[in-house]
Amino acid sequence: MVTIRLVSYLEKMAGFREKEIKIEEPTRVRDLIAFDLPDERLMVVVDDIGGDLDTVVDNDSRVVISPIFGGG
């Protein structure tokens, strides 16, 4: 199962905070996203390593997608 964790206001956009998706083969993050997310100003981290929406993930991966923040 791939775990997708959406941070901050992305949760409201997608309607969930965290969910698990079973995949049959390695898949791009982008193809796991069945909802509209802004393409720009996103942080994608897969298993604690920086990636992007085209990073390929496998079952057991944890994907964190966050808006980009400036840090105040």
């Binding site: 941070v7 901050s8 206001y9 808006p67």
Partner: peptide
């Protein structure tokens, strides 16, 4: 693109990221 979200939560939108 994120103007409405900013106007909703301001700088505090970051808190969930820090928690994560």
């Amino acid at each position: 693109p994120n103007y409405d979200h900013w106007m909703g939560q301001g700088t505090t939108m970051i808190l969930d990221f820090l928690q994560e």
